[in-house]
Design a protein around this nucleic acid. Structure first.
Lengths: 234, 234
DNA sequence: CGAGCGCTTGACCGGCGTCAACACCCGTGG
DNA sequence: CCACGGGTGTTGACGCCGGTCAAGCGCTCG
């Protein structure tokens, strides 16, 4: 089995109590005394693009939350095709299935340089036995994951290639600056929407041509959205 | 807002303690004393095919579990296209988002004659405050819903029309007799897999032609699966 | 500066959508 | 009892969208 982390990935032990993204995180409304219940260290790990966080069927012992970066959840078909089932970004939680099963159900791979908090299952179990405050937060996470999954089906996996690419552009906007969109390789975008990379490329060129989006780099990853309306009604 | 149920749908008050499907249900491991905490009646409702259980954005006050039948969860695009994000069957729970939001996020419609238990939110809240036993069960439901959603993307919404229809045939097998598959209208099958109904029909004809499946009725709904292997490797 | 990777673009073709005709099942009413 | 009509499934003809194969370009990094 693939080791869960190499030394080069280890970034230190997380200080949850004073964490900058604590409001968004799983432990948002824990009290000071609750933190004293955490006996197992929560590590901070760093992954470079395309590094594997865990693989399908690997033993599941941790939950993860994203400090910054992005993760793709992947299912590999028996014939080798790769399908991206969901993309998670800053403050999202993944690996929730660890709470119920001994194995992860998808593969998790970094899409860019990504920093994670790795929370051992024991920590969750200790906390949830002794304080009820975690349950609500966990349920919020399940809810968000499920809603994201349903959105994924209803937006970027629905309709013509043109519509799918338009929806991807909209979906991958930066949270704090919604007129900028941060995309991924054409290959990955294809695996998200069940299109071939050439088709994605063509539709991207078309939107650029029409002035609906405007490239901000030369790698085809960052674009400024000029005409949101047109993308919505594609 | 659409009323949550008409008198004609009302089938009586559920007796959860002695429910036949209790092992599969949310209340599987409640003790006798826990049932005494249920003060609000849990109704049993019956819906005919194409009747609406709830609509998108309708006020969410209940969780549902399926006693028997099938429900489609639908998102309606602004241009009128209908997308089925998931299909639920006997013993599945839906409307979980009611636990966190005041509105349902999808529309729920009966695919066939379906009997539901309708559980008021108060019941869940009462029980989960006073007994911890429900939490685990609820989490199992979130987990199953999320896994189903991911499977949906990775199987029946992935690859060629041929592969999608093959996956649908496999996915919609009867739980107790897995060599029989119970399908829906070509229209609905199309909305599940993002294909046109004619394409679904053609691929169905092709599998029948090849002897991979064999019709059991004249409406194109029930088939016997003769060659599972071929469907899997389509 | 050259190798290699990812993106783009073109030419071609096949799969799927579109439009339409027809078959079949069933319920209704003559 | 049969005639009729609507709803659903099937099948055909045709055209276009998106997949395939291939060439070329621009970055980036040795």
């Amino acid at each position: 089995m693939i080791p869960i982390h190499k030394d080069s990935q280890w970034q230190g032990i997380s200080d949850c109590k004073n964490c900058g993204i604590r409001e968004m995180a799983l432990f948002a409304d824990l009290q000071d005394e609750d933190f004293s219940l955490i006996h197992t260290p929560i590590d901070t790990l760093k992954f470079e693009a395309s590094e594997i966080v865990y693989s399908e069927n690997q033993h599941a012992g941790y939950l993860f939350t994203i400090r910054h970066g992005a993760i793709k959840l992947v299912r590999n078909a028996s014939d080798g095709r790769e399908r991206i089932v969901r993309v998670l970004r800053t403050s999202d939680v993944f690996g929730l299935e660890a709470l119920l099963k001994a194995q992860y159900e998808t593969e998790a791979i970094a899409l860019e340089t990504t920093e994670l908090c790795r929370i051992p299952l024991e920590v969750i179990h200790q906390l949830s036995q002794q304080t009820p405050r975690l349950h609500q937060r966990l349920m919020e996470r399940w809810h968000k994951a499920l809603k994201d999954a349903d959105d994924w089906i209803a937006s970027i996996n629905f309709g013509s290639a043109r519509q799918r690419v338009a929806q991807m552009i909209l979906k991958l906007r930066l949270t704090h600056t919604p007129d900028i969109t941060a995309l991924y390789s054409r290959q990955d975008m294809g695996a998200m929407s069940d299109l071939k990379l050439e088709t994605v490329s063509r539709e991207m060129s078309r939107w650029t041509q029409l002035g609906v989006i405007q490239p901000l780099d030369k790698k085809g990853r960052m674009y400024k959205i000029m005409d949101e309306e047109t993308l919505l009604n594609a």
